[in-house]
């Protein structure tokens, strides 16, 4: 599903070169659940941005499903992204729309037939245990609920791959644990999950393959 071969990424800040990833190689199989672990600045977010083609690697080759991201034309990036769901630390919900509308919005802009929108949106809300809050606005949600809504929005289009970038970064341990359980539920239904987190203890409790990053290098892979 995911293959990185000697991938490096260097950002330029004016004349200064800032290395974010150095010579990273690994493979993640279809249906696998892997955790990218490491402190802030380890390169986890950069790696995820490379995977959804928000950035191009400076060196190396990245393959996601059937896409070679290094040579993928810009016009095909939407097709790649339609195959994946993405969640961030900040839930990025649209403030002027209810939870249900936030999820239905994705289906509508992707051209889902109208009769399918409501059942699918409520199916996703049910999967994250948020059906009762469907008509609430993001400002009325707790941080944990907002992250659940973001997860529902990510899975409503039934992606092959779910990328989660510090989804529990703002949450206390109990709620973070619930979100991790949700991610495991999603994985158990066949979605490949790649979770980036700095919460090593929580990640350990997941008991899944862990890739540890430090200073842009992959220092440990227990897979």
């Amino acid at each position: 599903m995911i293959a990185l071969h000697r991938v490096s990424k260097v950002f330029r800040v004016g004349p200064v070169k800032v290395p974010a990833l150095s010579d990273v190689s690994f493979k993640i199989g279809k249906g696998e659940f892997a955790v990218l672990c490491g402190p802030s600045g380890a390169g986890k977010t950069t790696l995820l941005r490379l995977l959804y083609r928000d950035e191009l690697p400076t060196e190396g080759r990245i393959d996601v499903a059937d896409y070679n991201l290094t040579s993928l034309p810009r016009s095909e990036v939407p097709a790649l992204r339609r195959a994946m769901g993405i969640v961030f630390q900040d839930a990025k919900l649209l403030p002027g729309r209810t939870v249900y509308e936030n999820i239905a919005f994705v289906l509508r802009v992707l051209g889902t037939p109208r009769p399918e929108i409501t059942p699918r949106a409520f199916g996703a809300l049910k999967a994250v245990g948020l059906s009762a809050r469907a008509q609430a606005y993001p400002a009325q949600l707790s941080q944990g609920e907002a992250q659940r809504a973001a997860l529902a929005r990510a899975i409503v289009k039934e992606p092959m791959l779910l990328l989660a970038d510090e989804p529990t970064g703002n949450l206390d341990e109990g709620i973070a644990s619930e979100i991790f359980d949700l991610l495991k539920d999603i994985w158990s239904r066949g979605t490949t999950v790649l979770l980036a987190t700095h919460q090593a203890a929580l990640a350990e409790r997941l008991n899944r393959r862990t890739l540890v990053f430090q200073g842009g290098r992959l220092v440990k892979d227990d897979g």
């Binding site: 990036v77 939407p78 097709a79 790649l80 992204r81 195959a83 990025k92 649209l94 802009v109």
Partner: peptide, 9 residues
Amino acid sequence: DIMRLVGVP
């Protein structure tokens, strides 16, 4: 941003 992230051309 959301539209771009979910793959809208």
